[in-house]
Amino acid sequence: MRHLTYYQAVREALWQALEADPRVFLLGEDIATYGGVYKVTEGLLERFGPDRVIDTPISENAIIGAATGAAIAGMRPIAEIQFADFIASGFDPLVNMTSTIHYRWGQPVPMVLRAPAGATWASAGPFHSQSMEAWFAQIPGLKVVMPATPADAKGLLTAAIRDPNPVIVLEQKYLYRRMTGPVPEGEHVVPIGEAQVAREGRDATIVAWGTMAFKSLQAAEILAAEGIDVEVVDLRSIVPWDRETVLASVAKTGRVAVVYEAHRTAGFGAEVAATIAEEAFQALDAPILRLAGLDTPIPAHPVLEAEYLPDEHKVVEAVRGLVGF
């Protein structure tokens, strides 16, 4: 199978959706003429024209609200928020209007909100580094996915575009140009809500998502050299999330680390850990371990940023402790 980098896989999903469905259009800041700050949407304006690839003013509230309105009027809008951190500027329509429409009056809202999220290990600082999946996981009516591979970036985005609900796709900007992998050329759909066992193992389970799934696989290689056989479950979808796959892995290994990049307190990993404690307590041979970002803003200086972020070495250290418990 041919290989694509992560951002190319995102672009291919957008391209194919625009080709296949006249209801699909894109809107966002600097996405048309400029091709997006990460060049994900480069070339789409030239191919699909200004009615379907729309540059907007700097107005996150209006972008999210307009995507909602276009969705209920029969379109399939894909809104890009330039950095996921900026969704905060459009939080109100998202959590009060968009997410409640179907529950309150039965009208589907088939829209996608794409945004580059997460830290870069390149000093992006407090306002271009956040992982905010837990914000949205608290809002009934929103689906949230965080692809960790190029194939999933294409497949989950395609699923999101076809979903009759608002879906937030938190693309991992660390992986945009760092990760290359096999991606099916034609239609490729990864069902929302299905985790993937990215690596099978016997000794312990790591549950991770987004860039942390990538880092956890790196850690698993290091640990394998030490004779520790780790299973990595890439959650892929945050809402809804795949409890069955996680619990089956925990039942198999008896030891589990939950690794996430967001702030530790009340992060989504806390939900995963609590569910494991509720549902699989008898299977556990060691306390559930959480490895997450610190409860601080995400600092810019590389020394400070490295201290904030979990990485493969911290994962290795944590799993050694877990296995040795």
């Binding site: 509230n61 209006a62 909602t68 309105g69 276009a70 209920i72 009027a73 379109m75 409640t100 009056w105």
Partner: peptide, 25 residues
């Protein structure tokens, strides 16, 4: 008829989106 919410001004961007759909089509 678009169903309003108690945060009244949210109807503005949503109506903008409905109008945008009309324009695109």
């Amino acid at each position: 008829i678009v169903g309003m919410i108690s945060v009244l001004p949210d109807s503005l961007p949503v109506a903008l989106g409905v109008a945008l759909a009309f324009k695109i089509r």
